Simulated scan of single mutants.
Amino acid sequence: MSIIRNKHHKIYSGIKISFYLFFYLLILGSTSYIDLPFNYYLEIFVLRSCMLIYSAIAFFVIFHLEKRPPKDFGIICRMTTMKHLVYGLCMGAISILFITGILFLSQQAKLEFSWQQPIFSTNILYILLLFIVVGIDEELLIRGYMIHTLGRYNTTYVVYLVPAIIFGALHLSNPHVSVVGFINIIVIGILFTYMTLKTRNIMMAIGFHITWNFFQGGFFGFNVSGTTTEAVYPIILLKDNLWTGGDFGLEGGVLTTLTVLLVGLLVYYLPLQKTNVQRHHNTLSHDTTYKRAT
């Protein structure tokens, strides 16, 4: 048996993903040495946009090398998938509003100023654009490439767990990372995978990812995976515990765990109209993965 190719005479998905991830991290790491004469948030936005461009080029190459169209990776832009995107955007925003409301009611957080004193600046716009780019880029990498590559010849458990663990590992270098935070990132990754398999495209995961990050950081000023940003309504945490998540942000708290589980139930019961994705004739395992998810 070949150590490179599986019984279908295809290169093992793990090898493909390892190479893709290696070059992705290599380019991501190289951007940290680039110093642009920009505002901090604009600089980060530009550098992450470069990563998105890299992802787009990488996918273009993959489409031609593997002779698989974008829809085989869940990249579908049509009316149905735009609805999925809107669902994701709404659920991400409402989730953070829900968690914040509980923290307010339990007197574990408060506004730094008041509801009548929102802070608007060009930095908030850059932060929004940054989270849009990050959401698209990371979902192309994890839910776009990884789960659709693993899903062709691997079991459902592999499709759910491996990308989610890699997604969590990508956040281990973030400031103030905690055990609960790491676990929550994995749980969120599993939710994003479920969204992708349920809808057969990555648009809902992208939408949720964007507003989940922006409403944490750019709107309320919670740390996003340990990273601090400016905000429209800065929040002051009155307590540092397992509910608030401490310096890692909401993702380090058990409220996030419970909220993500609730969102998973909501997605399960949503009467979502699936896209009609025609997959390759030999992707039986991939088809089974989709069926089990629904």
Rank of each mutant, 00 (worst) to 15 (best):
W212Q: 03
F214M: 00
F215K: 01
Q216N: 07
Q216R: 09
Q216H: 05
G218Y: 01
F219N: 05
F219S: 03
G221V: 11
F222A: 03
N223P: 12
N223E: 08
V224W: 01
S225M: 05
G226I: 00
T227D: 07
T228K: 13
T229F: 10
E230T: 11
A231D: 04
V232E: 04
V232P: 06
Y233V: 08
Y233M: 03
P234Q: 01
I235G: 03
I235S: 06
I236P: 07
I236Q: 07
L237P: 03
D240S: 14
N241F: 06
N241P: 10
W243P: 06
G245A: 00
G245W: 03
G246V: 05
D247V: 01
F248G: 02
F248P: 06
G249K: 03
L250I: 15
L250N: 01
G252T: 10
V254L: 08
V254F: 08
L255G: 14
L255I: 14
T256H: 05
T256F: 12
L258V: 15
V260L: 13
V260D: 08
V260R: 04
V260A: 09
L262P: 12
L262A: 15
V263F: 03
G264F: 13
L265C: 15
L265F: 15
V267L: 12
V267D: 06
Y268V: 11
Y269A: 05
L270Q: 09
L270W: 04
L270M: 04
P271C: 09
L272Q: 13
K274Y: 11
K274E: 15
T275P: 08
N276R: 13
N276S: 15
V277N: 01
R279I: 10
R279E: 15
H280L: 15
H281G: 12
